[in-house]
Every structure is written in structure tokens, then in C-alpha cells.
Amino acid sequence: MKLIVAVQEPVTDGLPDAEPSWRDLHAIELERPLIDAEMDLLDVQISLLDRPASELDQRRLRRAANKVLAARRTVANRLGTGDAA
């Protein structure tokens, strides 16, 4: 029987600290409203995959998209840059 062995070294082998730093956690916390808004938009989009959108569905989709845009603006202003996502 022939053994199959990886040719390359593992990318994550020997990392001294695999846990996120406090800076990483703080950055995630700053972007949390955007993450939540994007998840809401994704939920609406998934619900519309297998059926035509009614007027109420279109309104839900617009509101979710507007919520994402507002969250992106807030995160960008908070981070002090023009590009948040």
C-alpha cells in the first residue's frame, strides 16, 4: 500500500498564540452592528430563493439593505476611514 503524505509544511504549524488578541476582539466588537445587519440581509435573501418576492418581501429586502448601508457608514465613521468593508 502506498502512503500519501503532505508535500508542504502545515501553514498553521507552530503558531505561538492561536487565540485572537484583544485588538482583534475589539475590532470585531466595533464591526458587530455591521455583521448583524449583513446576517439579517442574508436571512431575507435566503427566504426569497425559492419563491417570487411579494411587495412585503421587497420592503423587507430594502429595509435590510438600508440597514447594512447605515451600519457600514457607522463603522466607517467610527474607524475614521472611508472604507469599512
Rank of each mutant, 00 (worst) to 15 (best):
E38C: 03
E38W: 06
D36W: 04
D83V: 08
A6V: 08
V75L: 00
D40K: 09
L3Q: 10
I4F: 14
A64I: 01
L56T: 15
R32Q: 12
M39T: 13
P52I: 00
A85S: 12
I4S: 12
E19Q: 14
P33T: 04
A37C: 07
P52W: 08
L48R: 03
M39N: 15
L42P: 01
L41Y: 06
L42C: 02
P16S: 04
R51M: 01
K2E: 09
T12V: 13
P20R: 06
A71Y: 02
L34P: 05
R63M: 12
D57Q: 08
T74E: 08
A84W: 02
A53F: 00
P10L: 09
E29G: 07
R32C: 06
Q45F: 10
L41R: 00
A6H: 03
A6W: 00
L30G: 05
P10W: 04
R62D: 05
G82C: 01
A64M: 06
D43H: 09
Q45N: 06
P52Q: 15
A18P: 06
R23T: 10
A37E: 06
L30E: 00
A53I: 08
E19W: 11
G14I: 06
G80M: 03
L34G: 05
L15P: 01
E9R: 15
D50G: 08
A85M: 09
E9M: 15
A6D: 03
R59G: 10
D17L: 12
V11K: 09
E38T: 07
L25E: 11
S54N: 02
R60A: 02
L79Q: 07
R78Y: 05
L69H: 07
L49F: 08
P16C: 09
R73E: 09
R78N: 08
A85E: 13
V5E: 14
E29F: 10
V75P: 02
I4Q: 11
A53V: 03
K67A: 10
D36V: 11
I28P: 06
P10S: 09
L34K: 06
N77Q: 01
E9A: 15
